[in-house]
């Protein structure tokens, strides 16, 4: 059974443990600016919304990549950036209608969530279960995908 990140914004307190954990896992240091998951703070509404790649089926990033640097991880279903192949052209960053693949100016490559290979650090660090890693069917990610599907060029 493939698993997905399930995000429940109502439970999020905006502590950014997820961002810290993500950066520590992927960059080796505490650096939320390099996190693949981002918590948006709707200050005036008193709402926090963690946001990251939904590993969407359409995989706009992967399809737009001109050098085959984004591949499907057969185990987790995540779309992973192969850093040694990525040339840093950034086409994926404009192609992804979610804005969840981003250019890292210090590495000259793009980065995105890869579910930490099946043990996502953000979910592990979240103190309120706002981010959990659960069976893909139970996530409600399909709703986010439905939203994104409006973007699709009617090809699916």
């Amino acid at each position: 059974m493939q698993k997905s990140l399930h995000i429940d914004p109502a439970k999020c307190t905006g502590c950014l443990q997820c961002e810290s954990a993500c950066s520590l896992e992927n960059e080796g240091i505490f650096n939320p600016s390099k996190s693949r998951i981002k918590v948006f703070n709707f200050h005036d509404e008193g709402r926090f919304v963690p946001y990251t790649c939904t590993q969407c089926d359409e995989a706009w990033c992967m399809q737009a990549c001109p050098v085959d640097a984004i591949v499907i991880n057969a185990e987790t279903g995540s779309k992973d950036v192969l850093e040694d192949i990525c040339v840093g052209c950034k086409v994926c960053t404009i192609a992804c209608p979610f804005g969840t693949i981003n250019y890292n100016t210090s590495s000259g490559k793009v980065v995105k969530c890869d579910l930490c290979g099946g043990d996502p650090a953000c979910a592990d660090a979240c103190p309120t279960q706002a981010i959990t890693y659960v069976d893909a069917n139970a996530t409600g990610l399909d709703k986010m995908r439905a939203w994104a599907a409006k973007t699709d060029n009617a090809t699916s």
Partner: peptide
């Protein structure tokens, strides 16, 4: 009271957010 909010890295999240 709308919700509780946390400061950076805080796993307690005592902060009140209100209207």
């Amino acid at each position: 009271l709308t919700t509780n909010g946390a400061c950076y890295a805080c796993t307690i999240a005592c902060g009140r957010i209100s209207t």
